[in-house]
Amino acid sequence: MSVVQEKVPVARRAQPAGGRRFAFTPTVTVYLALAALLVVGSVLVAVDGGVLLDQGGILNILTRSTVLGLVAVGQTMVIVTGSLDLSVAYLIGLCSLVAAETMAGQGSMVFPGVALALAVAAAVGLVNGLVITVLKANAFIATLGVALILRGWLEHNYTGPAGSVPRSFQHLGYDRIGPVPVAALLMLLIAAGAWWYMRRTRPGYHMYAVGGDIEVARLSGVRTSRTIVTAHVLCALMAGLAGVFLASRLGSGAPYVGTDAGYDLESIAAVVLGGAALAGGRGGVVGTLGGVLILATLDTIFDDLAVDPFFKDVVRGVVLIVAVALYARRKLTSGRAS
């Protein structure tokens, strides 16, 4: 319900009379912050003697956004449902391996490879969801447990990259239209589908209901377990797609490609940056994409300025805390006002 109410004022208020009215939705805040970041970044990079938003820069930002965007969109669904998925990072590595090993360099095996990788992903998501709903384990522990199991599997069976991807499949990773990578467009298409699912369909609304208050949702006749399992399966499928995309870009499967980039915590950070509440019930795909773009733009700016890579982590941590503190403050003041 709060979702509907949240959207109405912005849509109706075309006049920026209050100006504050806009600041009330996290989604608007995120994109304002992104715009500000792009301006400040452009100035900083220009002072340094470069151009941030030239073809290479845009390409860089979009490429970085593709994988994180996929994972974060999936994570959004899970977090909105009031859950959490810490297993995505290892799942990405596993799916890249499954895809690359099944293809084994043969063009004819592209489809089976992708299908098998996604099937593995869906199965892992199903396990996540069932452990949470049937075994009644806390989502944090359940997905952490599954993550550790996947890690054990990966460490036991792989020491490095394995499998190989046919040349035809590498087009997915490298083709582009102008400065826009095809994969980024595909990611946006999937994100649009996720947005439609969450905001325009009944199961999507159920996700918000379950995340808002699971007891109220249950009493209202929502099949809460089914909703949670669905969210986890969809999230795992997104992570699987990210793994497949990474396999196409790297040319082979790599066990630690997901964990090295820290996609588990990073995706949660992007979702929270996009204005979602970790407790569930609030958030959305559009805000998350804003969060993803902010993180990707930060990375690109730091690359252009040749900042020490480890300084990025520090800034990322500070940005995350500050953003959530701002949201919490806003919620507090608006809560008092009404």
Partner: peptide, 26 residues
Amino acid sequence: ITTKLLVPSFIVTLGMLLVLDGAVFL
């Protein structure tokens, strides 16, 4: 940060993890 700024501790300590890791390597 958790008590005064009302940020969930998961996020605060995650941010602290990133900051400390980055700072140590830096």
